[in-house]
Design a protein around this nucleic acid. Structure first.
Lengths: 197, 197
DNA sequence: ACATGAAAAGAACGACCGTGCTATAAATGG
DNA sequence: CCATTTATAGCACGGTCGTTCTTTTCATGT
């Protein structure tokens, strides 16, 4: 990997952390230059514009998300077991990622009223994520682990709601029971979707 | 009401709408002045600082939230009926408010990593809101409408999760089934907390 | 080791930021 | 209707924004 690509990656890693704290819009080039120890123009030379940088940040984060959340789940057996890994990996991701929670969650409310290519990229990512959950749930249904009347999209919606709530409880409210709460809620989801005893 | 108070209110109303779109931090004085047709300094004279303005925006929004969400619920009979009104009022609030969703939801992820008095004010508001839900749930339990083992705080957490998810589905994803989704999820919550048939 | 191309820095730009100060205009009470 | 308070506008400040252009430093292949 050439020197250019190397620093470019380093910038993106740092930028992801900064963006998670102050938002994709709130993040500034100068701030980023200070954090990376580069000059503003030296840093800026790696990207076409701030908007392009924001999109690259999302792409970079998406790659890491696939590595750390999606891939581990795909290694688990299909159905509920995979769903559990998916959920646990997400929680781990949100706890570890940049010490500032999940960037996608932060960007979601930041960009929901700001049309443009950055928002479009985020919407694609979020749709993919919900679709991924729904697919795994669908397998659990067709394998008979979940009741046949369970709606995979609705389940995905409710499970996704828990990830949003966890970020809220953990990062904003600093609730010491946040982890416990989100796990209990997830177990409740699973239980109610399962076959009656 | 004096002229000053009048324009001050008008500014806050407009500022709330702007803040819901671009965030409390993203909002600027100049932007606000243009929107209200005032000069920057004329507008600024009503507030001690931008930070003070942000806090006033939250206070103003909280007042309206009490009027439009909390009060209607308090007029309903205690227990589950009141819980339903609380939820429905919130959905109505989030659909109507400033055409940009609930400011508290937007501010939650914006401020979760930005310490200071604005964040503190928001945390207070969110805690009050969760406490309010938990209290109503507590009544439903003690009146026997909900099972005695239902944890009011956990229920509040999960119901709050739905409000976050609704904002996400409705404003970011523009999901046409968002309203349907959130209602089904809420009914599911209520059902599972109720006495078994 | 050196020529060549890539990477980083420097300096500058117009624009807008939050925030003061001063002057003008408008509302208010006697 | 006038005096006085109150509300708004004008203007300027130091600073930072995103972005561009030019120059210098560095990495790379032969």
């Amino acid at each position: 990997m050439s020197k250019g690509d190397e620093t470019r990656r380093a910038i993106l890693t740092e930028a992801t952390a900064v963006a998670a704290k102050v938002g994709l819009t709130g993040m500034t080039i100068g701030q980023l230059a200070t954090h990376t120890g580069m000059s503003k123009s030296g840093l800026y030379a790696h990207f076409a514009s701030k908007e392009a940088l924001q999109i690259e940040i999302l792409r970079h984060t998406r790659e890491r998300f696939v590595d750390e959340v999606v891939r581990p789940a795909l290694r688990a057996p299909r159905g509920v077991a995979r769903l559990r890994v998916l959920f646990d990996s997400w929680v781990t991701w949100s706890e570890s990622a940049e010490d500032s929670g999940c960037l996608f969650v932060a960007a979601s409310s930041e960009l929901d009223d700001r049309p443009g290519p950055v928002r479009d990229a985020l919407v694609r990512d979020e749709r993919d994520w919900l679709e991924m959950i729904a697919t795994v749930v669908g397998t659990a249904v067709s394998e008979g682990e979940f009741r046949p009347d369970v709606d995979p999209d609705q389940f995905a919606y409710e499970m996704h709601a828990l990830t949003l709530a966890h970020q809220h409880a953990s990062r904003l409210l600093r609730d010491p029971h946040a982890l416990d709460r989100v796990h209990r809620a997830f177990e409740s989801l699973i239980t109610h979707a399962g076959q009656p005893a």
